[in-house]
Design a protein around this nucleic acid. Structure first.
Lengths: 150, 150
DNA sequence: AAGATTTATATCACTGGCTTATACATGTAT
DNA sequence: ATACATGTATAAGCCAGTGATATAAATCTT
């Protein structure tokens, strides 16, 4: 029952729109039995290659024990493996497995298909507007990453 | 280690960009001690007024017991209240409280501020592109809602 | 109008995924 | 060599979800 925002006229409007977009995308995202963090971690491993457990925990904004446990679960499910770091014997290098990569790919396809259906129901100009904004949104994503890292 | 998408050239690209945007927005969203579902449910109650427990469970895509428990927690924390439906004495009408509305507003402001900081770091053309795409994204959100309801 | 069925919510037992606090092993510096 | 810092693991506990089931009210059937 709240009126629409008034403070920072322009960016608050953007925030409102993006918040709604976020909720919508959340509903659309295929779960496939894995948590948000699990998906995000697998995607990271898939894109960037083996990472230290401590890198992962910082990147995913969860505590270190949480990441230890997540990696244990991923390992149990066959989506990731622990390996030692020859350079530092304290460290653990986590790598994605074939099955893990396959899962990431599978989810991405499912997500793309779901979005495809939705996009198909939009008008051509709307699709064009969204596509035109993608590079800017890409930089928005980078800015968010930089902001949360800081 | 996956190559970039190849299948549906255009919409898959959009999907990829939106997926990244989604992850970024997820990191940026202020938690304030409530779960994603709790926030989403409160927002719904705030915007649409009192709802049945069963409406909420369907709308939020959680099981009915989960919504019963969530409402119990929200009630315990003073953010929502249960009320009977005079028309159907089996039903429970859940309403948001003053404190609940205040929390929703507070979070929205915090989210807007966080996004504001991030948006400020973008170039003016990038901001403009994102703003230009907002109406289209709004309709995308509606389309997602229609799609997931179906 | 009585009984059967459906609908709305609640309760129970369980699991997953997170937290903090702490332990332990390896690396680094003095 | 001793002390401190770093990387990971373990332990105990909480929150938030699940499926199975119970209970009460509404609806249908005859």
């Amino acid at each position: 029952m709240q009126p629409v925002i008034e403070s920072q006229p322009e960016s608050a409007f953007v925030a409102f729109g993006l918040a709604r977009l976020y909720d919508a995308l959340r509903r659309l995202a295929p779960r496939m039995g894995l948590s948000l963090t699990a998906h995000s971690t697998l995607k990271r491993l898939d894109q960037l290659g083996p990472q230290r457990l401590s890198e992962l925990h910082a990147a995913e904004s969860v505590t270190q024990p949480a990441m230890t446990q997540l990696v244990t679960r991923l390992e149990k499910d066959g989506f990731a493996v622990r390996g030692g770091d020859p350079a530092d014997r304290r460290a653990v290098l986590v790598s994605i497995t074939e099955a893990g990569s396959a899962l990431v790919e599978q989810r991405r396809v499912a997500y793309a298909e779901a979005l495809d259906t939705v996009l198909a129901s939009l008008s051509a100009p709307d699709r064009a507007a969204i596509i035109a904004a993608l590079p800017a949104m890409e930089r928005l994503v980078d800015a968010v990453a930089a902001h949360t890292t800081t």
